[in-house]
Design a protein around this nucleic acid. Structure first.
Lengths: 122, 122
DNA sequence: CAGCATCCGCTCGGATACTG
DNA sequence: CAGTATCCGAGCGGATGCTG
């Protein structure tokens, strides 16, 4: 580890990475890719609510950051799939933990919200 | 786990949670709180670039979601600190993994970006 | 110290239409 | 199928000023 990097520092480049990863769509894409490469429109269908424009942007950013690999298959018509790079793979566990923490603890969060809101009202 | 919850579903409540957690500031706050409660202005100073308004909003949301506990100490003047709830504590490992993945893999990401950009240019 | 209220620029992201 | 291009409204978040 390079001790010069510090996420709490405003001007540290890690902030840029954090900004990329702290994105709902990027997390969902990375989570969806953990079982292997997926094609563009397949991703689009699987991740409900994700528009094609945002998917395109998200994939491009993830590719630029070296987390996702874009592969073009020379078929007719051309087909393209997206998979994790080795670097991206080092993140999958964390991403999965994140995404599924929500599923596991949803009830507790909803209960906390209800309690908080009723405390405000009453 | 409740199999009814699915982060890939557009209308699943877990999407709301994911939205909250997939936030740079929320992640940094949670990461900063893992060693114990911290006072408001202390947080503000430690997390560079975080404005007071956004810190306030972030803390309120995290409190509403049951991840953070706000404690008022009846001193003069009043002092307030924020700490993790037991629920919030179940997230710290994941959050820390996230924040520090950035620090660990910064060099690789920067290299990937450079390669990507030069491939575009040249 | 620990906030709230207001203004406001800027970007995110949804909708739509078009291309190879 | 796999995108690009454009328009545009909503909201995030920074700056500033004020309160108990």
């Amino acid at each position: 580890m390079n001790p010069a990097y510090d996420v709490f520092d405003d001007h540290c480049p890690t902030r840029l990475v954090l900004d990329r990863l702290a994105d709902k769509w990027a997390l969902l894409v990375l989570d969806r890719l953990q079982d292997g490469p997926v094609r563009f429109n397949h991703l689009r269908r699987d991740i409900r609510g994700l528009s094609q424009k945002v998917l395109s942007q998200t994939l491009k950013r993830l590719e630029r950051d070296g987390l996702v690999k874009r592969t073009v298959h020379p078929t007719v018509p051309v087909s393209v799939d997206y998979g994790l790079t080795p670097l991206g793979r080092t993140l999958t566990e964390t991403v999965a933990a994140f995404a599924h923490w929500a599923e596991l603890n949803m009830d507790a969060v909803l209960a906390a919200q209800t309690a908080y809101d009723s405390a405000m009202t009453g």
